[in-house]
Amino acid sequence: MTAERAASAPAHAVGGPSPRVQLARLAWETALATGGVAAGDAGRARLWQTVDRGEILDGVVVAAQGQGDFAVELHLIAGWPTPPLHEVAATIRERVAAAAEEAGVADVLGHLSISFGDLVEPAEEAPS
């Protein structure tokens, strides 16, 4: 981490979530609130998860990139009827950037990758 970036990175609020967890929470909530997304996908080995104060957020992984910023991975399950998935991904990116700005963690938001691993119909139950 460079000295400038380290200085500009938001400090861990005592008793509050770290910027990494804040990013995970806002990316996860934003994605699930976007049309065409049915659920987060924790993966078969349940590796794609983040824990926020005891709550497990399925389908989001946030990892430090070494430059003071964090890479965000969203693993999602699409819902039917499905809008164009690249448009869904673009909407999520815009909304996550806006939410990060509002939360004061935009400086540490790095690469955001979005993958759609499955698709479910309303009658089909999304894996939890």
Binding site: A89, A90, L112, F116
Partner: peptide
Amino acid sequence: SGPGTTTI
């Protein structure tokens, strides 16, 4: 997709 990738 610019600042990230989209995988299907």
